[in-house]
Structure formats: C-alpha cells, structure tokens
C-alpha cells in the first residue's frame, strides 16, 4: 500500500508541474511583454522594467522558466492588476465559497444517485427503468448555462421563491448547486444503477445466498463494497470537476468563488489572477484525485496488491 501511495504522490507532483508549465507557456505565447501583461495597462515603465528583470525576460527562456518555478514554489504569482494585492491570496480567499458550493452540490448528486440507482436496479430493464434512464440521459445533455438561466427566470423572477444570487442564506445554495451538479447526478445515478445490477447478479452474491446468509447481510457485507468501486472512481473525479469547473455557474449566480474570479480575471486582462486561479484549480483537482485513488485502493484489494 505504501508503495502505491508513494507512486501516486510522485505522479500528482508531475501533473501539477505540467499544469504549471502550461501556464508559463501560455502567458509567454501571448503577444506583448509578459511583464507588462502582468502589471496591467496602468503600470509605469520603471515598474515594468523592474519586473522584467525579476522575471529574467532579458535572459534566455530556460532562465525565465527557472525564475517562474522559483516564484511558484514561493507561491508568488505577482500582484493582481485589478486589486493591487498578491494574486494568490485573493484567489485563496475565494476558495471556501467554491468548496462549499462543490460540497453541497456533491451531496445532492450523491443523494440522487443513491436513491435512484438502487431503485432502478431493483427491476432492471423494466418500463420504469427504461423511462427514467432515458430521462436521465436527456437531462444530462442539457446545457448548464441554459438550465441556470431557466432556473433563475422561473424561480426568482416569476415565482420569487429564491434569492437572486450571491452567497447568502442556505436558500442561495439551491440553484447554483443544482445547476452545477445535475449532469453529474445523471451520470452517477446511471452508474450506480449499473453497479447495483452487476453486483446483484454476480457469482459471489449467489454464493453468499447459497451459504444461507440473510439477505441483509448479503447486501451489507457483499454488495456494498463492490458497488462502491465504480462510484468512488467516477464520483471522485466528478468532485474534482465540481470544484474546478464551476466558472460559468458561479458567474450566472454571482457566486464569490474561484471560478468567478477566473472569468473576471480573463475579462479584465488580470494575468496574475488568471495564473493563480489556474494553479489553485490544478492543485485542487490533483489533490481530490489523489485522495480518490488512495480510497479506491483501500476498497479494492486487487488494485493495491496487483494481480497475481
């Protein structure tokens, strides 16, 4: 297990390195002087020159890369051109809001999946199953921004049931969480259903029943763990995506998270914020995946012990 975890850590670090390098390449590929881009249109030539030296723009590209990595290691992304503060601290201050939204959204997703999944698996391929599975597939395909806007129109404008946006009371979580999570809920519900059906028809469940175990024990001890495997795998990745992919939802609902700050940064040419944001996305996503990988190996011994 230790070897497995260590391997996972090494890979995670490599992925973050690649993400960070991509930031470097992208910013350097933009037209214009990188130092100027970072400081914004209002910067003085002196400030630009100073930053340019700091970034090593007068030196070769590999030196620049070296300086860049050094800065990243010091968590220094420069100051935001919009707010004048260190970009990373601005972004980090927004992380809790995004985490909350991701958390609430994931909870909803899990509830839907664990209710619908077993329900549909009870009588697989029945009329109900086919109807609901089809509906789930359809819903999954709806565009997120469209759903968000429809929800706003109906629930806020017309029915005046929910607050219009921003993060305030518990009711303000509802629409963004739904808009963010509904495609994941559909996928996970179908996956759960398939997982349940597979397990219920498996040879080892048959053996468990043949041993004379009570149906309850069969479900709890034999079905549960094996059903979790595909759910943890996919659910884990989804969680990463919920955290990192909420840019549009946050913007629609004026949610003060890192997604909103990324979009604003792009619109306002605030490259420091953009770099810091992407970095936080990458680290967050990789961290979640790492946890999921470890959890996955814990649940399925075949992964950590290797096939013999």
């Amino acid at each position: 297990m230790i070897a497995y975890v260590l391997r996972r850590i090494v890979f995670s670090v490599i992925v973050i390195l690649v993400a960070v390098s991509t930031i470097f390449i992208v910013v350097r590929s933009l037209p214009g002087n990188p130092a100027q881009l970072l400081l914004g249109p209002d910067a003085t030539p002196a400030a630009i020159a100073r930053l340019a030296r700091q970034m090593g723009l007068d030196r070769g590209i590999f030196v620049q890369y070296g300086y860049f990595l050094r800065d990243v290691l010091h968590l220094d992304f420069g100051n935001s051109s919009q707010f004048g503060q260190p970009a990373l601290s601005i972004v980090m201050a927004r992380v809790p809001a995004s985490l909350e939204l991701a958390g609430v959204s994931m909870t909803m997703v899990l509830i839907v999946a664990f209710v619908l999944g077993p329900l549909l698996a009870w009588r697989p391929d029945s009329r109900l199953d086919q109807l609901v599975s089809g509906a789930l597939m359809f819903i999954q395909g709806l565009p997120g921004f469209w759903v968000g806007v429809i929800l706003l129109l109906v629930l806020v404008d017309n029915l005046r049931l929910l607050p219009p946006g921003g993060r305030s009371n518990w009711e303000s979580f509802i629409m963004p969480a739904i808009t963010l999570g509904f495609p994941f809920a559909c996928v996970l519900a179908r996956l759960t259903r398939d997982g349940f059906v597979d397990v219920l028809q498996s040879g080892y469940v048959r053996t468990a029943r043949a041993k004379g175990l009570s149906e309850w024990r069969v479900l709890r001890k034999h079905c549960l763990r094996n059903m979790l495997i595909p759910i943890v795998t996919v659910g884990g990745v989804q969680l990463g995506m919920l955290f990192s992919g909420a840019a549009i939802v946050e913007t629609i609902f004026n949610w003060p998270g890192i997604g909103q700050s990324l979009l604003n940064g792009i619109l306002n040419d605030d490259y420091a914020i953009v770099e810091a944001d992407i970095f936080v996305f990458a680290v967050g996503f990789v961290a979640v995946n790492f946890i999921v990988d470890v959890l996955y190996a814990y649940i399925d011994p075949r992964i950590r012990l290797g096939r013999s």
Binding site: I2, A3, Y4, L6, R7, L305, G306, R307, S308
Partner: peptide
C-alpha cells in the same frame, strides 16, 4: 512482474 517487490 509488478506484484513482486514493488516500490518503483
């Protein structure tokens, strides 16, 4: 054989 004595 990866299952024999791992760690990298």
């Amino acid at each position: 054989d990866r299952s024999q004595r791992s760690f990298l």
